[in-house]
């Protein structure tokens, strides 16, 4: 078996079936798990009663927990997981760098900075979401401007610009922490930056769903072009691909997904890094199925990790810490496989 082969452990077609059926099952399972014990038949009944009228055999509090607590949180985890995984995959193809991640091009830092500003302004949830989006897109604009917004920018200057922009926004966040009211705002900022889905509710779900779906749809539209870009800009240009247009479109989609995820649940790392590699390992790199497979796997992964975060102990385990803890060893394992001589 080989990581870098065109083929993975399973045919992409089988992967789509497996994950397509696995995700709803995983969601159901996650909806049935939590600190408050709810029998699975009650969970199922509550979910069904949203679609068809049923005589409740469950309690009011069970219904509230499932519909107001678990459902938006699990759906949000699925969306954010799918979004971040595909955003990472798109960047890896775009930059031909297996370590590319939304954090690389400064979008996470920009979105985080916008969100922190909202907290400083004592803003409501809506303001936070809006400013995080503005921050993320602003960072992208800044990066493109730095890299030279004409057609001539190279991958290297883009990545360097991402480093610069991340540093600037990171410094702004540090400055904001410094001026924040230490009793009221600072703990909120720290908590939010840590990354958590605990604040999931329907308004956030709606926002996450709209932004992530648009981003995912855009990336799906250009799945073949991203495949071509993974051969390198030069080759893509020689093949007649409008490289700059494709890259702009992909970056906007990535920024949209990343900013939306930062806005609704803070900075969650490693999903965009680990999942695309895992997809390749399991199902190969056939481009037509790659984006849907990555999205499904990312959704399953974050739902799983978040379920652990909220149900392992009385206190919530920080989600960002958990994704890193699960992601880093997995990535180390993948890295060792990647380092094997190619074509051998």
């Amino acid at each position: 078996m080989s990581l870098s082969g065109g083929r993975g452990l399973l045919a992409p077609r089988h992967g789509l079936w497996l994950l397509g059926l696995g995700l709803p099952l995983g969601l159901l399972l996650a909806l049935g798990v939590g600190r408050f014990e709810i029998p699975l038949r009650n969970t199922l009944g509550i979910l069904l009663s949203q679609l068809i009228p049923l005589e409740p055999w469950w309690s009011d509090i069970e219904e509230r927990l499932v519909t107001w607590g678990r459902l938006p949180r699990v759906l949000l985890a699925a969306l954010i997981g799918a979004g971040l995984a595909v955003a990472g995959a798109a960047l890896q193809g775009l930059f031909r760098n297996p370590l590319a991640d939304p954090q690389l091009i400064g979008v996470s830092a920009g979105a985080a900075c916008g969100g922190v500003l909202a907290i400083l302004l004592d803003g409501s949830g809506t303001l936070l979401v809006v400013l995080a989006l503005i921050g993320g897109l602003g960072a992208l604009y800044f990066v493109r401007w730095l890299a030279g917004s004409g057609g001539g920018e190279s991958v290297l200057t883009l990545i360097l610009a991402g480093v610069v922009v991340s540093a600037v926004f990171g410094a702004l966040v540090a400055l904001a922490k410094f001026v924040a009211d230490p009793q009221n705002q600072l703990p909120t900022i720290v908590f939010w930056l840590m990354g958590s889905l605990a604040g999931a509710d329907y308004p956030r779900l709606l926002l996450g769903a709209v932004a992530t779906s648009i981003g995912l749809f855009m990336l799906w539209l250009i799945r073949f072009q991203l495949h071509v870009m993974s051969l390198g800009e030069d080759d893509a240009r020689a093949l007649g691909l409008p490289v700059t247009r494709v890259r702009t479109l992909a970056l906007i989609a990535v920024a949209l997904i990343t900013a939306a995820s930062v806005a609704v649940c803070g900075v969650i790392g490693w999903v965009g890094l680990v999942i695309p590699h895992l997809t390749r390992l399991l199902f190969g790199a056939h481009f037509a199925a790659f984006i849907p497979l990555t999205a499904l796997l990312g959704a399953l992964y974050l739902v799983g990790v978040d379920t652990l975060a909220r149900s392992l102990s009385d206190a919530e385990i920080p989600l960002g810490a958990l994704t890193a803890l699960v992601g880093a060893p997995m990535f180390a394992y993948l890295l060792r496989r990647l380092r094997r001589p190619e074509g051998a």
Binding site: G34, A198, E316
Partner: peptide, 18 residues
């Protein structure tokens, strides 16, 4: 009720219900 956690602990709504 939160004596099983330590310090100022982040918890879910569901935990409070439990």
């Amino acid at each position: 009720v939160a004596a099983k956690t330590r310090g100022n602990a982040a918890v879910s709504r569901e935990q409070i219900i439990a």
